[in-house]
Amino acid sequence: MIEVDENDLMRCPICGAVNIDKGNKNICRRCGSNIYKHRNFSTEKSWAYLITAIIMYIPANLYPILITNQFGQAEGSTILGGVVLLWEHGSYPIALVIFFASIMIPVLKFLILFYLLISVKYPLGNDKKVSKHKLYYMTEVIGPWSMIDVFVVAILAGLIHLSNISIVAGTAATAFAISVFFTLLAAHAFDERLIKEKL
């Protein structure tokens, strides 16, 4: 017989099995993987990824993401410029999709991860108005959708390369792809057990 406190039970992030928290080194009894082994610096990894992502997000917005070569004239458009252009042309749904995918979702994700990372260190938002586990789950679900813009650029660049008109990707495409990549890593590196709402 083992006596366990319910708060000591945790979920393996890999296979979802319920495990007993034994302190510093936890190996999942079902899949054998390490469960967040870096307990001494639990949030630092996530912080590092998040800051990298935010830094990469700056050039992603400043440089052109799409360069259109039309009859010898090169014209670049940034993420925000592309949204404005689409809005002016009257394709509101697509403008909204791009706006949500490349501006709203990344910024929202930065803010949520920021909030989560701060709130696990300092007593913040423990009044249970918004479930932090749900916030975290939401970032994991909506996060990948910001890749839409990168894929759109890749598709347009692959589709249109005539001698007169061609579209090539811009510097921002690289920066944006790296930014999204690092936000995803930051979300995965976040230790869900640090959220202690039930205490």
């Binding site: 017989m1 083992i2 006596e3 366990v4 406190d5 319910e6 039970l9 945790m10 979920r11 979802g16 099995a17 319920v18 495990n19 007993i20 009894r29 079902r30 586990h133 749900k134 789950y137």
Partner: peptide
């Protein structure tokens, strides 16, 4: 909560959301 051994934990599930 009392458990016989660790394998009994398979009867439990933690919501992933």
């Amino acid at each position: 909560m009392k458990l016989e051994n660790e394998d009994v934990l398979d009867r439990f599930v933690i919501c992933h959301q």
